[in-house]
Every structure is written in structure tokens, then in C-alpha cells.
Design a binder for these strands. Structure first.
Length: 363
RNA sequence: GGUGGGAUUCCCGAGCGGCCAAAGGGGGCAGACUGUAAAUCUGCUGCGAUAGCUUCGAUGGUUCGAAUCCAUCUCCCACCA
């Protein structure tokens, strides 16, 4: 068994665990920075290691289009290609079924995409996605699903779920590389019976881990928590649980409290590039705003990241304002530091069974 | 010295008698962003809460009405002496 629970919170469903992969151990609960195209934007692998990142994401759809699988195979997989020797989780392309919905047609065995780059058509289904992820050589492979949009009628959500379940069954049947673990993805929009049914069917099929998808697509935050609450009791205790695409610091804490072990989200990296920085209470400030033009204090006085130890808001705002890349890099560094450090605090609090107190800071 | 072209709102630049507080860029300001078509996108950008007021090099005219037409002046640019 590759997943081990080390300790549990006495007040919530939170657990402290360890996931073993061919490229090392992942300590959970964990936040995974997103590196869609084979890089966490503006970060070098060295940066990520210094930040304490234990696992990052890659994306099937995007890497398939560019550089393409021929080159990826020649490179010897994504780890070799990008010089990252720690674990990688690859998304299956299921999110692109949602985010690029105007560029694709649903078919029984997958999706016909018109490339967002040049419009050329190609087919991506569970078989193709598994094949690609096998070539990528990721440690954790995601089943091919449709990330259900929101809002979504019950009937549409049901239909979408049926397709997803079918695709996930096919995903499971494909042969993967040595050591690769496959995670199933629960869908069902905001409907309790669909979510539970989805989870039950996935458990029946059997996966090394279980993800909850179709969240943070516009639904109210309370609905997100409800979905997690419906699903987790159905999922096996001894397998990792992953909420995809989530979220804000508060959502991470609330997810952990509900028994979630893994998270990924573009929010810290994207906000950084767009000029917003996280403060220790989980709020953000627009560093690029003119009001910081002559503020010679760090983003966060209490933060000990490289950015805060060395640079002022005035300087960072200047860099962002004139479009210098270093600005985006420094804020990305800071935001990722905050997210990764927050999860480290979460882990420590679970070891000491003080998670409840930490949670209170983010209500 | 002569001939021609030009001066527009923070900048560049369109407008060439009413529909013009004035297109479009840029810049500035604010906001959005959740398994990344995202170093992207949206809104605002003369003053005023409104009525309205003040702008298109300067001054003076023509006209019901002028950024737009006329006269003079100032400054720029090109060519010719």
C-alpha cells in the first residue's frame, strides 16, 4: 500500500499521511503547484525545491500539443525533460473538456478537440489520455473525465456523469507504466445522489486514489463543502483524496478538515503574475497598485520568503508596473511560499493535534 | 529671406461647420482571476453628484452654431535661396 496515515485529528476528519511514489514520498495534506506546460510559470526546479514543493502538476492536453509525444518519448518522459526528479501528477485533459468547451465535440469514447493553437483537430479520450500520461511518466495519472460545468441541470449532470464513469472505467483498463498510480475523479455537479453514486462506482472500479472534480467552477463555496462532505464518507479511508482545482487558503483548510489530502490550484501563481500577493491571514493585496509606489516595506513583515527578506513593495510594484519578469517571479515565489508553508503548518498541527486552532485563524 | 506642411484632451494620433468632451492606441487608475487558451481579461480616465461649466497653439473675426472657415501673431517641420 503506497498511502499511509500517520495521525488523525481528534476533532475533524483531517489526517496526516504519506504517499509513496517512484520519485519519492509526498507528505499530506499537500498543496501541489501547477506546471501545466512542463514548468511552474517563472519558477525553476531549484526554486521549487527551495520552496519545499514535493510534487507538481503537468497537463496531458497541453503537453500532447506541444512539444508532442514524439519529443516527450525521446526526452525520456516529463521528469527528464524538465529536470524535476520529485513526483509529478498529470491531469488527464478532463479540465480542458470544460475550459475549452467551445473548441470541442463530445463523442462516446472521448472528445474531438480543435487545437486552441492552430485549430487542427485531434481526438482525446480515456485510451489516448492514458497512453499520453504513460509516455509522460507521471507518478500519479488522472483518469479521463469531463469536468462538469456550473450551473448544470440535474439531467445534464447525470448524463455527464454517466460519460465520465464510462471513461474512467476505460481509463482503469489501460496498461500504465511501472509504479504509476491511477486516480479516479468523482463528478456529479452539486447533486448529492449523483456525487455519492459517482464515488460508489469509482470505489467499485478501484483506484489508487480518489479525486473530487467539478468544483471551484463557479458554484457557491458552501456547495463545494457540501460536495466534499457527501463524498468523503464513501471513499476508502486508506486511499488519498484529492480535491482538484482548489483553492483559496480557507478552502484548503476546510478541505483538510473534511478529510482531503491533496490540492492543486493555479491561484497563487496566476494571482502573482497578475500582481496580487497573499498576506499571512489569507487575504491578498494588489502589490501592483499605485498606492504601493512609495511603500518601502516588504509584502508581509512576518514572511521569511526570499522575496520578503530582500525586496520592498515599492520595488516589486515598480517591476510589475514596467512589465519586468522579475516582478512576476518574486510574487510567485512569495505566494507559493505562503501556500506551501501553510500546508506545512497544517501537517505540523496534525502531528500535534492542534489543527483545530490553526483552522480558527481562517474562518 | 521665400514657398509649402503642421500645432487636438497626460503622450501619440483621428476629426476638418452642428450627431464632439472629441475615434483609436499608449500611459495611468481600479477590479476580476480556483485540475492555466491567462506576463490575461474587464471597467474608468477634462471639472462637476446633476443641471451645467471649461477644452482642440494665441488673439480677434465670420456664423444661429467653430477643433473644423477667415485675419494676424507665436512656435515647429520640409524644401528653395
Amino acid at each position: 500500500m503506497s498511502f499511509k496515515i500517520l495521525s488523525k485529528c481528534s476533532h475533524t476528519r483531517a489526517r496526516r499521511g504519506q504517499l509513496t511514489t517512484p520519485h519519492g514520498i509526498v507528505n499530506t495534506p499537500i498543496f501541489m503547484p501547477v506546471g501545466t506546460r512542463g514548468t511552474v510559470k517563472t519558477m525553476s526546479p531549484e526554486d521549487l525545491k527551495e520552496l519545499g514543493a514535493e510534487i507538481i502538476l503537468g497537463n496531458t492536453y497541453h503537453l500532447f500539443l506541444r512539444p508532442g509525444m514524439e519529443i516527450m518519448a525521446k526526452a525520456g518522459g516529463l521528469h527528464e525533460f524538465m529536470n524535476w526528479d520529485r513526483p509529478i501528477l498529470t491531469d488527464s485533459g478532463g479540465f480542458q473538456v470544460f475550459s475549452l468547451s467551445n473548441l470541442r465535440k463530445m463523442k462516446k469514447d472521448g472528445v474531438e478537440f480543435a487545437s486552441h493553437i492552430d485549430g487542427s483537430k485531434f481526438f482525446l479520450g480515456p485510451r489516448e489520455s492514458m497512453q499520453i500520461q504513460r509516455t509522460l511518466g507521471s507518478d500519479i495519472v488522472m483518469a479521463f473525465d469531463e469536468c462538469t460545468p456550473y450551473p448544470c441541470s440535474y439531467d445534464d449532470a447525470k448524463k455527464s456523469l454517466e460519460i465520465t464513469t464510462r471513461w474512467e472505467r476505460i481509463s482503469r483498463e489501460q496498461e500504465l507504466g511501472k509504479g504509476q498510480q491511477l486516480f479516479g475523479i468523482v463528478q456529479g455537479s452539486v447533486y448529492e445522489d449523483l456525487r455519492i453514486k459517482s464515488a460508489e462506482e469509482l470505489v467499485k472500479i478501484g483506484f489508487e486514489g480518489y479525486a473530487i472534480g467539478g468544483l471551484s467552477v463557479g458554484e457557491p463555496e458552501e456547495d463545494m463543502y457540501k460536495c466534499i462532505d457527501w463524498v468523503t464518507p464513501v471513499l476508502p479511508e486508506d486511499r488519498p483524496r484529492y480535491v482538484m482545482g482548489v483553492g483559496t487558503p480557507k478552502q484548503l483548510i476546510e478541505g483538510v478538515a473534511r478529510g482531503i489530502d491533496m490540492f492543486d490550484c493555479v491561484i497563487p501563481t496566476r494571482l502573482a503574475r497578475h500582481g496580487s500577493a497573499y498576506l499571512s491571514d489569507g487575504s491578498t493585496i494588489p502589490v501592483k497598485a499605485g498606492r504601493y509606489a512609495d511603500d518601502f516595506t516588504p509584502i508581509d513583515e512576518n514572511c521569511n520568503c526570499y522575496t520578503c527578506r530582500n525586496f520592498t513593495k515599492a520595488y516589486i510594484r515598480h517591476l510589475l508596473n514596467v512589465g519586468e519578469i522579475l516582478g512576476m517571479r518574486l510574487v510567485t515565489l512569495h505566494n507559493l511560499h505562503f501556500f506551501l508553508n501553510l500546508m506545512k503548518e497544517v501537517r505540523t498541527s496534525l502531528e500535534n493535534d492542534t489543527f483545530d486552532q490553526l483552522r480558527q485563524k481562517f474562518v
